[in-house]
């Protein structure tokens, strides 16, 4: 079972991203679970959401304390204790924009999703873009399934634009870049 934890701010769509990823994994015929760390909704406040993906049925219902993947929608969150909580040496971190990598020993994939989201959506909403990064970096879920899930949840023009955004992120990101960033980190 793969456990993914999302960190974002209220209004950035981390909860929707967790749901989209669960839906996409379902289309790939995997078992999945997507849910938020339930709380009162406040724009801008740090928000957590979770996705589990597995080949077998998932029964556990607790939150995710030791994520295999960490997806950070907003780099300004990366210093928070709750973001660093429970990270394993092999946890893979996927982050929008640059973060101060000195606090992390883990492999980090970073990409400026905000700029592309502004270009494609005209808005700084990167939740779907992050899924494009995740799909490319991990291969755990297919681009087609993510696009299908986006179609289900958004529909209409917003759906089309988000599908385009995901595809562009998927095409423009790769593991090489991220590895380089990580190598530099280990050298430095």
């Amino acid at each position: 079972m793969i456990e993914i934890r999302f960190h974002g701010r209220g209004g950035q769509g981390a909860v929707t991203a967790a749901a989209l990823l669960a839906k996409a994994a379902g289309y790939d015929n995997k078992f999945s679970q997507g849910f938020p760390a339930f709380g009162v909704e406040r724009r801008g406040a740090p928000v957590k959401a979770f996705t589990r993906i597995s080949d077998d049925i998932i029964t556990i219902r607790s939150q995710i304390y030791k994520p295999d993947y960490l997806i950070i929608l907003d780099p300004s969150l990366s210093g928070l204790d709750e973001v660093k909580e429970g990270l394993k040496p092999d946890t893979v971190i996927i982050v929008n924009g640059e973060i101060d990598a000195s606090g992390f020993e883990q492999k980090i994939y970073s990409y400026d999703a905000t700029s592309l989201a502004l270009k494609v959506l005209g808005k700084d909403i990167v939740n779907t873009a992050m899924l494009g990064m995740f799909a490319k970096a991990t291969g755990l879920v297919s681009l087609e399934s993510i696009q299908k899930a986006i179609g289900d949840i958004f529909g209409g023009k917003a759906g089309e634009l988000n599908m385009e955004l995901v595809k562009r992120v998927y095409d423009e990101t790769g593991s090489n870049e991220a590895k380089e960033a990580n190598d530099k980190e280990t050298e430095g």
């Binding site: 078992f31 849910f35 938020p36 219902r61």
Partner: peptide
């Protein structure tokens, strides 16, 4: 059914 823990979860 349990609120949030079940009601707000996406699953198959």
């Amino acid at each position: 059914l349990d609120g949030f823990v079940l009601s707000h979860v996406y699953e198959p």
